[in-house]
Design a protein around this nucleic acid. Structure first.
Lengths: 224, 224, 224, 224
DNA sequence: CATGAATGAGTCTTCATTCAT
DNA sequence: CATGAATGAAGACTCATTCAT
């Protein structure tokens, strides 16, 4: 009954099994015995490859996350601050739509871990959000955005808004529109930070940007 | 040693004890035995008044929340949409600062409960957020806010932003400024929804809206 | 199937069961499940009364030991240093003969515990050995014993000798005579410390002491 | 990666690794995986050369012990029963000081093994202690020692005394003086068994013996 | 009503030993 | 011979819930 697999294969089997179980039951309720069963090994085997439950779970999250990051195609050079902002938010929302279990795991459970800030996850996530901050900073530097509103708060509103928007979906209790949400969030932030005066020049810019967004939508992005 | 208390007194003793323990240890780590101890009763007694652990905890949260709502002084009639918006956000932030344990409990733990939407908590919370929505709706109706951005998203950005902003504080890992945060969030939302300089933009907006409708029809699969 | 006993009765049942198991299997190999079985309860019940395995075991040892100390009849005022010494040694040997399991537990296992010195056991044991030291000290003070031999070493020889003497018995691999052993140990110590015929030896002793002091000074490195 | 070593080399590597681990962690806490790691082999390999954990550990102890015995230089013909006794005790104490890990292993752990008496260790140890017994017997035969005290008990007091004396040191909780302890133990035993009458002849002998001991000390023994 | 003793089903974790390759 | 993956049997400890008194 004992099959010998190379270390890598076994590890990936266990990680895959763990991923499944976590996706189904969540962090706290996932049980080592279940994972072992599903990976076709006994519990002890898991402990050959992973220090303990927490270690296993963190590795699951990291692998998952890295896989996601790798899959994200490089930005298709959309023009204009608004459009780039919209695109980044769109991607985050799309990821959540595609990977609700991962998101739920990271957002709702792993992040509550006292050691979260010292995990590699934290760094990965930071890299993921840094892009938005850079974009906002550039906007301020170019004069497109006001300098009078702390960007940290804008960032929190973006990510917090995304989380709230998708909350029901993540709990399998509702749905959300990726496009509509991306549009609305991007607009509120863009307009909220924008330096446009009363002269009417800015609204034009914004209208052009929205037209470009429509063009984007008409050019269907390959589905992941 | 067995004191016979009226049902109400007993229940409130237990609720108070539970609240303490939850505030100290959090939902998952709160233990029935602890609560019983602190309430001066015995584990079995708790089960006479509460179905089970979850039931007890929900009742704790509800009581807590109602107490808070009752304590909130009626709006001191500040004038102007922006000021009222800012005031409501300020109150929420201030509540978090004053009651981190309650907030942590509801935000991070209770809300994850599968049955959250069917709890009275959900309704209470809805009442708490409804004010914001009403304000935003009034803004739209009076023409102060644009009608082109879904208000649900704005609401999510407000509450999501608040949560993100206060996350570190709730985890005892950082701090936040109530005033600065309230200001910034209110500004972004207000400016983000505002119809400033709408006279010059309207024709363009209308044109854009028509194009969007066309794009929608052309998009082969239902938009997400 | 669930019988309700008063706390005290249940505790004593568990302690008794634990004592049995420890006596049979020893500290390390005693298993909670076994003890529970024998006490007629489930494992969880044990944890209602005892913090953990170590706690239970220490309580067993203490109870056992106190029981022993209580049973020891008050000293029957034998006269003379030698006779009193012999009597104390005899009692220790007799205790070992009567309670091999306890002795094995304390001597061989509990004493190895890193926290042994902070246990009440340590104190109890100290009280038990203090009598011997007092006796030896009195002997020195009265001039019956020489002051030139450290009493600590004599004490170690007594207790170490007792342990060695009874080792095989404790391991159920041999036997020993309480009387013969008590006699011999007492004699060696008594004669070993005795000042007999000191009058002729003194001048020489003093000369030797001076030489030793010189030797000390000449010894290049500090003596171990 | 698999190097093919001659059987002997492999065995000695494993033994060396095991010795290290035992010295660091003790018998119970030494783990096969650790030993394999340190020996540069894999767990399974160990089982090719050793029946099981116990077997390995016994072989470690034996090898260690034999090495020690081999290192002990032949007695440098010190004169007089007292001095020879003192020297032998001194050597045992010195060995403990030099090799606490080995001693702790043998004294506290291996010796508790039910099969200890059938191990070669037991025989080795017997050889080690036999010298003392021979010396004591000679003392009795020459009339220097009394025949009325069982020598077995004297032997137990010597070794038991040594163990008690060094107990704290072996538990890393204290220290002891090799010289002082050797002196005191030897004196108690010598005087305890001695046949010296009241005529004053004996004290002279003893004084001479002590002088010789001083001479020994002034002739530094090569350090091991 | 209140007690609080008792339950018992988990859960994680450890490690000596085996055995397919 | 050597590898090292896999086994599997323990074992300590937790805690919500029940129920005899």
């Amino acid at each position: 009954m004992r099959s010998r697999l190379p270390r890598e294969k076994r590890v990936s089997d266990i990680l895959a099994a763990a991923r499944e179980v976590i996706a189904e039951r969540g962090y706290e309720n996932a049980v080592i015995a279940d994972i072992a069963d599903r990976a076709g090994v006994v519990e002890g085997t898991i402990y050959r490859y992973f220090e303990n439950k927490r270690d296993l779970f963190i590795r699951v999250a990291e692998g998952w996350y890295e896989e996601i990051l790798r899959d994200i195609r490089p930005s298709q050079a959309v023009g204009g601050t608004f459009n780039r902002l919209r695109q980044m938010i769109w991607r985050e929302l799309d990821l959540i739509r595609q990977q609700p279990a991962l998101t739920r795991f990271i957002l709702m459970e792993l992040r509550s871990d006292p050691a979260y800030r010292s995990m590699r996850m934290f760094e990965l996530n930071r890299a993921f959000t840094a892009g938005i901050m850079d974009l906002l900073k550039e906007g301020v530097e170019s004069g497109e955005f006001t300098a009078s509103i702390p960007l940290r708060v804008a960032r929190d509103m973006i990510f917090g808004g995304i989380e709230h928007r998708t909350w029901a979906f993540l709990r399998s209790e509702g749905d959300f529109s990726v496009d509509e949400s991306a549009d609305a969030i991007a607009q509120i932030v863009y307009r909220g930070l924008s330096n446009r005066g009363a002269d009417g020049g800015d609204p034009l810019d914004r209208a052009v940007a929205r037209l470009e967004a429509i063009a984007d939508r008409l050019t269907p992005e390959p589905r992941r």
